[in-house]
């Protein structure tokens, strides 16, 4: 058994080494006072300074944060509403809806990205043709109107794409909370004088909150570090951070990239730690209370 323990511990160490070695190399060499990724020339923060002076990077950062925050907010509201809708369905239709919900999660990002891009282009062209047709009409001309519904890939399409792939994560983290919910709670609130809306707001929502916040954090993480779907749906004018990283790498692996990647890694890591800590704390708090209740007479 003892020997086994050593072997398994060694395996674990090797596994972690393979998993995290690349990231450690990246982090360490982002502080290297040389462009080399092989020779250590002393500690510097210059690359970080340069990074923050790089206009393309800063503009991408703004885009990324804006799109992530907006997409997360919208997806959280929409996803929560959808989860509640799913929950109140009959069993068969709910199972069907959940299956549909899970497809985007398992689908390859490339396919999601390409299909969304095609859809946007298709709708954009359709609307453009529709505008032209409207503008050709006699009464439109008489009224001195000019329609232009056409749009092309850009921030709007990027945002829609992000909302779309965020929603399933929110739904998946809200649903378990709904299942734990005592179905009599909302009735009890109504019984005490609350309208349906007030009952939902004051009693049901607080119960769902931990799930909603977890879903929100996961959605934000997904949005922040998404590359593939953004790449296809953002068009040529808008870029997110990961797209900037990609385009820079294509030219050469500049040390700025290492600095940027390090920052992104740390940001996402912090978010993940927060999510996990929250979940662990919720569980242990519940266990503690149950324990306390069990000791009551």
């Amino acid at each position: 058994m003892k020997k086994n323990g050593v072997v398994s511990r060694l395996l674990l160490a090797v596994m972690f080494l393979f998993l995290y070695a690349p990231i450690f190399v990246l982090i360490i060499f982002s502080f290297n006072d040389s462009k080399s990724t092989a020779v250590w020339n002393g500690f510097t923060l210059n690359w970080y300074v340069e990074l923050f002076q790089n206009r393309a990077v800063m503009s991408a950062l703004r885009t990324t944060l804006l799109v992530s925050v907006l997409a997360t907010a919208i997806a959280t509201v929409a996803g929560t509403a959808a989860a509640i809708g799913f929950y109140s369905m009959r069993r068969r239709s709910r199972t069907a809806c959940l299956a549909v919900n899970n497809i985007p999660l398992t689908n390859a990002d490339v396919i999601t990205g390409v299909s969304m891009m095609l859809l946007f282009v298709f709708v954009g062209q359709g609307l453009s043709a529709f505008s032209n047709w409207l503008n050709g009409l006699q009464w439109v001309e008489d009224a001195n109107l000019w329609f232009d519904f056409s749009f092309s890939l850009g921030f709007g399409t990027l945002l829609i794409a992000h909302i779309t792939f965020d929603i399933p994560y929110v739904i998946l983290s809200v649903l378990p909370k709904l299942r734990q919910l005592d179905p009599n709670l909302a009735e009890a609130a109504q019984d005490l004088g609350a309208t349906r809306f007030v009952a939902f707001w004051k009693v049901v929502l607080p119960e769902l909150m931990p799930g909603i916040v977890n879903g929100m954090l996961i959605a934000f993480t997904m949005s922040i570090d998404d590359f593939v779907i953004s790449y296809f749906t953002a068009g040529s004018q808008v870029s997110t951070l990961s797209m900037v990283v990609y385009s820079m790498v294509r030219r050469q692996i500049s040390p700025e990239i290492k600095a940027l990647s390090t920052l992104m890694f740390v940001a996402v890591l912090i978010l993940l730690v927060i999510i996990n800590l929250r979940q662990a704390r919720q569980e242990s708090a519940a266990a503690r209370r149950r324990h306390a209740a069990a000791r009551q007479p």
Partner: peptide, 17 residues
């Protein structure tokens, strides 16, 4: 509706908030 009735309920599993 329930919230306008002068009736209150004690539920089977209490349904405390």
């Amino acid at each position: 509706p329930p919230y306008q009735r002068k009736i209150n309920t004690v539920f089977q599993k209490y349904a405390l908030f």
